[in-house]
Design a protein around this nucleic acid. Structure first.
Lengths: 159, 159
DNA sequence: CCCCATTAAATTGTGCACAACTGAATTGTG
DNA sequence: CACAATTCAGTTGTGCACAATTTAATGGGG
C-alpha cells in the first residue's frame, strides 16, 4: 500500500482541517464578492442587490417580498432596506398587495428592465474570473448544495 | 451512451449555472455561519471573532494586527473594532510594539487560554454538522482554494 | 361574531466587510 | 540631515446579516 492515511483523524487534525475549510469558505465567499463588486460597479449594484434583481428578472410578474426571501434565504430585516435602496434607485416599485394587505409585492420598472440588458455580460465575466472548468463548477455546486442542506438540517435539529 | 450532456453551454445555460453557483456559495457561507453561531454561543464568540482567536491560539507569541489581517485577509477597518471587542471581553490585550510604534501586537490573556480549552470540541461538531466525508471535505477545500486564488488574481489584474 | 394564534413586513440594535481617509511612525533618498 | 514616500492602525460611512421586537392583517375555533 502506498497510501497510509490515518484511518481516523485525531482531534488536532480535525481541528486543522476544520480551520482550513472554514477559512477557505470564508475567503472564497469574500473573494467572490470582490469580483462581483468590480463587475457590478458600473451598474451601481451591490452583490446582494444583484442577486435580488436576478430573482425579480426571472419572473415576469411582480413578486412578494416573502417569495424573494425564500429564494435567497433572507429575511425581511435584510430585504426591506435592500429593496428600499433598489426602489430609491428607480429599479423597482414596492406596493401593498390588494388581495393580502400584509404582503408587499415588488415590480421591476422600465429602468430595471433596461439594466437587465447591461447586466447580461456579468455572468460570463465571473465564470472567466473563477477559472474553473464546467466540470469543476458542477462539482463545487453539488458539494455546496449538499453542505448547505446538511448544515441547515443540523441547525433545525437543535433549535 | 446514457449521458448526452450539451457539449458547450450556451449563454442562457452559463447564466443559469453562474446564478446557481453564486447562490450556492452565498447560501453555504451563511449556513456555515449559522452553525458556528450556535456552536460558539456558549463561548460568547462570533464566528469572525473565533477565526481571530484561532490565529492567535496557533502561535505562542503575541502577533501584530498586520499578521492577523494577512492570515484572515481582513484589513484594519474590520479587525480594529473586532479586536477591541475581544479585549473588552478580556480575552486579549492590545499593546503598541516597542520596536515599531506604528504596530500593535495582540496577546492572548489567561482567560483567552482558558477559552481555548472550551473551544476544543467545536471543530468536531462542525464537521459532524457538515455531513461531508473526509474525502469530500478535502475536495471542497481544494476547489475553494483554487477558486479564491483565481478570483484574487483576476481582481488584481484589473485594479 | 369575537378572540387569538399566525403570518408578513418593518424596525431596532449588534456585528462584520470594505472603501476612503486620517494621523503617526518609519524608511529611503537626495 | 531633511523631506518625501511608505507603512500601520484607527476612524468614518455605507451596506449586508441576523436576532428580537413591533404592527397590522388574516383566518380559524369557540
Amino acid at each position: 500500500m502506498t497510501a497510509p492515511p490515518p484511518p481516523l483523524p485525531d482531534d488536532a487534525e480535525l481541528l486543522r482541517l476544520d480551520h482550513q475549510i472554514c477559512f477557505s469558505l470564508h475567503a472564497a465567499a469574500r473573494a467572490f464578492g470582490g469580483v462581483y463588486r468590480d463587475a457590478l460597479k458600473d451598474l451601481g449594484l451591490t452583490y446582494p442587490q444583484y442577486l435580488a434583481m436576478l430573482v425579480l428578472w426571472e419572473e415576469p410578474d411582480p413578486q412578494p417580498v416573502k417569495a424573494i426571501g425564500e429564494r435567497l434565504r433572507l429575511d425581511s430585516g435584510t430585504l426591506s432596506p435592500l429593496l428600499k435602496r433598489l426602489e430609491a434607485a428607480g429599479l423597482v416599485v414596492r406596493e401593498r398587495s390588494a388581495e393580502d394587505e400584509r404582503s408587499v409585492v415588488v415590480r421591476v420598472t422600465e429602468a430595471g428592465e433596461e439594466l437587465r440588458e447591461r447586466a447580461l455580460p456579468v455572468p460570463r465575466r465571473i465564470v472567466a474570473a473563477s477559472g474553473l472548468s464546467l466540470q469543476d463548477a458542477l462539482t463545487l455546486r453539488g458539494l455546496l448544495e449538499r453542505l448547505t442542506e446538511n448544515l441547515d438540517a443540523s441547525q433545525a435539529g437543535e433549535r
